[in-house]
Simulated assay, not measured.
Amino acid sequence: MIPSELRYHKEHEWVRQEGTTATIGISDFAQDALGDVVFVDLPKVDAVIARDQEIGEVESTKATSSIYSPVNGKIVKVNEELQDHPEYLNSDPYGQGWIAVVELSNPGDVEDLMTASQYEEFLSSQS
């Protein structure tokens, strides 16, 4: 399941751009690889972030994995529901499992990320 309206980062994060903001989360591939998510260390609101920077962590029954920012900008909102319901990353990674909303430094940067078909090819080349 790779939604076509999103853009994707090589570290398996997705971006849903809406004007000058972008919602980010982890892909279905990432949550599946992690297994049952038990804790999410969210980024801090007002933090200025850079593309490829580690902004948080996801802990699962299998491993701990870093969350990387796919864009440059400032965190304006985080999904507080993940504190009590980290399993949303497994059950709905593209909906309730969103991680943060970023005010983009340069909205055009999202175009540099992979399209759904490019991400699908990227995943195929990894196996």
Score class of each variant (00 low, 15 high):
Thr21Ser: 13
Met1Gly: 15
Arg7Pro: 02
Ser124Trp: 00
Tyr94Ser: 11
Trp14Phe: 14
Gln118Arg: 01
Pro70Thr: 07
Glu59Met: 07
Gly73Asp: 07
Ile49Val: 15
Ile55Tyr: 01
Lys10Ala: 10
Glu5Cys: 05
His12Asn: 10
Glu121Val: 05
Ala33Leu: 06
Asn90His: 07
Ala22His: 06
Phe122Gln: 01
Asp41Pro: 02
Ile24Ala: 06
His12Leu: 06
Thr61Leu: 13
Trp14Lys: 11
Gly108Met: 01
Gln118Leu: 04
Pro93Phe: 05
Asp112Lys: 13
Pro86Glu: 12
Glu57Arg: 14
Ser65Pro: 02
Leu89Pro: 04
Asp41Val: 13
Ala30Tyr: 09
Gly95Thr: 11
Leu34Trp: 02
Asn90Lys: 09
Val102Glu: 07
Lys62Pro: 00
Phe29Glu: 07
Gly25Tyr: 01
Ser66Val: 08
Pro3Phe: 04
Lys10Leu: 11
Ser105Val: 05
Gly19Ser: 12
Thr61Cys: 00
Ser91Arg: 08
Val102Arg: 03
Glu57Gly: 06
Glu80Val: 14
Thr115Ile: 08
Tyr68Pro: 04
Met114Thr: 00
Ile24Trp: 04
Pro70Gln: 05
Ser91Val: 11
Ser105Trp: 04
Glu121His: 07
Leu89Asp: 07
Arg51Lys: 14
Val78Gln: 03
Arg51Gln: 12
Glu80Asn: 11
Ala47Ile: 02
Tyr88Gln: 12
Asp84Thr: 10
Val15Phe: 06
Val40Glu: 09
Glu120Leu: 01
Asn72Pro: 01
Ile49Met: 04
Lys77Ile: 01
